[in-house]
Nucleic acid binder design. Structure first.
Lengths: 325, 325
DNA sequence: CTGAAAGCGCTTACAG
DNA sequence: CTGAAAGCGCTTACAG
């Protein structure tokens, strides 16, 4: 490259990086020739000097990708303009595999690591607390003094239940996942706050068939039936909607149903399509990305848990109308 | 590191790499001390010499991850033992974004690139044909003289239709996606080969509602109804199963239904769970990974398209029994 | 205004 | 059997 432009290698370097002092024509000429011959500096050599690899690692145990992909999209989106590329490491729940991946990334001098998972209340099977690179947690439990990003499940659940109340539903039941999930308890707490304690919460598993079964339980009880269902995720909501249809109960005319997750494949294919709560995982990824970057550059970042607000996605399973409509 | 062991830096290097000649005790001592202080060589410095970064890039335009994640899992699985980490770049269908990612990876001296997508008959929006690093294509269209891995859709479709025939189905209809998809035409061709040309193929879109609608069409025609449905993907199959249930047609007693993709979230949650064709994407990823690695190491690899066999996953939507049962 | 030199952390011939 | 030197491709003081 330098030889092509007829200058020394150091002059070429300075020209391209807009550093040092030299004649404007020289700088222009070097840049022009670099462009012509498609010169691109070797990031490895650059990294050796600068101690920055412009590389970060994303560690996840969410094999299925339900949570990881949107988070990854946000990270990538935020960092691509800064020239940083991201290593994706799917580690299942295998501590040895996790360690292998972490070691490989550290060898490659990653500027930081983002740990992400599928539960707010579980740790990844690897200890990241004493690394010499910054670590940020997203949608998984962090450590003391770490920066952790998570969705605000309480606020999201309130959004859902308040929406049901707002469109006139008075007997709102809550069908959700296993009680040992932190987010289940948080959503149930918010449900109780808004809807009161008249109706019990139905805890179960994260499947369509549980949504189905819960509706059977609710509708085979004596007394008044619910006119609104707040479901812990979209799969449960879909099972519930299907069960209601099979019983001849009309959604949304007779009962409004609302889900959680906004998992398109489920929410959009339900008949009718589900109104649901979106956890804004892409935004969460974006912020996590910008935060590791800040830490990598030595900028100060306040440790602690950051809760990001959820957003209500209005489709047809509740009736009512979209805000502002 | 070297100083800790009281040897020169070159001796340390040779000890750890099992190269050069030295006393066995010296070698052992260096290794032991390296282990104790947790020494790990800087891969950037190493890469600068060796011209190998032990890094590859995965380029995909499958935002949703339906195809990319299993492929990625296979790649990672195959390469982690070789110490290679993988950059994931989701490029949507944006040529500028794609180029940015490719440039960033080339700067980082990736040893190779795997391009993957969501259709066998579409190119990624970026030209990878004249890179100075090896490129392998997986589940996307490659270029002249490239190595491309894809599923054998014809064989997969035969597997499905032969299974329906084997369990006694005689009037098998085929409900599938848009005819302009190469894989749709290939699967339809295989269907005709096995089932004959008595029944038309119903082309549509890749959605549950199309599966629904197609069943309405078939069952509102005069004459005999099908006793077997081969669906172009699991979503269509699920829609069909739901429509049949709503009509009071029993699956699998009256009609056997078979899907394609083995997308767990759809196939396993259908009532009854879907028998379907798995494209073995993880295996495809594994082979693609080993192939870029071979190319990166300069080992010879025959160019061309490699078709990988699909596998039948037997659940309950067809009746009959699993092979060997 | 420009270039020679040192150095990032390693590996690999080459001397001793 | 071990170490000093050169060099991978850059950047950054430092001379000229």
């Amino acid at each position: 490259m330098a030889s092509a432009a007829g200058v020394s290698i150091s002059t070429a370097s300075k020209a391209l990086n807009d550093t040092g002092r030299m004649g404007a024509e020289t700088r222009e000429r070097v840049k022009r020739i670099a462009g012509e011959i498609g010169y691109r500096p070797n990031a490895l050599a650059r990294g050796l000097l600068s101690k920055r690899s412009f590389t970060i690692g994303l560690l996840t145990n969410d094999t299925y990708g339900r949570f990881t992909l949107p988070v990854m999209a946000g990270i990538s989106d935020a960092l691509v303009d800064h020239g940083v590329s991201v290593f994706l490491c799917a580690i299942e729940d295998d501590p040895a595999l996790a360690q292998t991946h972490v070691d490989a990334m550290l060898d490659k001098q990653v500027d930081g690591i983002i740990a992400t998972g599928k539960r707010l209340d579980k740790r990844l099977p690897v200890d990241l607390s004493n690394l010499h690179v910054p670590v940020v947690y997203a949608f998984t439990e962090g450590t003391q003094n770490s920066v952790t990003f998570r969705s605000d499940d309480e606020q999201g659940a309130k959004l859902a239940v308040e929406w049901l109340a707002m469109i006139g539903r008075r007997r709102i039941a809550h069908i959700t996942g296993p009680e040992d999930f932190f987010s289940v308890r948080e959503r149930a707490g918010a449900y109780h706050q808004v809807a009161g304690h008249r109706e019990p919460v139905l805890y179960g598993v994260w499947s369509e068939s549980w949504g189905h079964e819960a509706v059977e339980q609710l509708w085979s009880r004596p007394g008044e039936k619910p006119d609104g269902l707040f479901c812990g995720n979209d799969q449960i909501a879909r099972g519930a909607v299907d069960a209601l249809r099979e019983r001849g109960v009309k959604v949304p005319q007779d009962v409004s149903v609302i889900g959680f997750d906004n998992w398109e494949i489920v929410a959009a294919q339900t008949r009718p399509p589900l109104t649901t709560v979106d956890m804004e995982l892409k935004e969460l990824g974006r912020q996590a990305g910008l935060t590791v970057l800040a830490l990598a550059e030595g900028r100060p970042v306040e440790p602690g848990v950051r809760k990001l607000p959820c957003r209500l996605i209005v489709r047809q399973s509740c009736g009512g109308r979209a805000p502002g409509e």
